[in-house]
């Protein structure tokens, strides 16, 4: 179990209908690759976030499959279309079964 896993997301507060916005996400996580060895020469077991999804009002924006080659504290930047006011839901899936969630509201004016 990774400790102190904190998701952070930046989404604009409002947008025009149909506008494309940029979303940035960062989650604190060691992303232990399974390649490193400890001081006794034992391999440190892999422990990473393996999947990330972003949905808006239940419809998919994007899904990312993460491999051990993704850096510590995974950063993801991508773009979304905002057809109406609603909520972005962000979900990160950990190797250990933990699921981390964050959501952001956006208003269409």
């Amino acid at each position: 179990m990774a400790d102190n896993v904190t998701p952070r997301v930046r989404v604009p507060r409002d947008a025009a209908a149909g506008e494309t916005i940029t979303i940035k996400t960062l989650i604190s996580h060691p992303m232990e690759s399974g390649q490193r060895k400890d001081s006794d020469g034992n391999t440190i077991p892999r422990s990473i976030i393996n999947r990330f999804t972003c949905e808006f009002n239940g419809e998919s924006v994007m899904e990312m499959i993460l491999e051990p080659a993704i850096s510590t504290n995974p950063f993801i930047e991508f773009q979304a279309i905002v057809p109406e006011s609603g909520t972005f839901a962000f979900t990160w899936y950990d190797d250990d079964g933990s699921v981390y969630e964050e959501s952001k509201d956006i208003a269409v004016s």
């Binding site: 419809e59 998919s60 924006v61 994007m62 990312m64 991508f78 279309i81």
Partner: peptide, 9 residues
């Protein structure tokens, strides 16, 4: 990366 219908790019 698998893009959904609401991907802006």
């Amino acid at each position: 990366f698998n893009f959904g219908p609401l991907a802006g790019a």
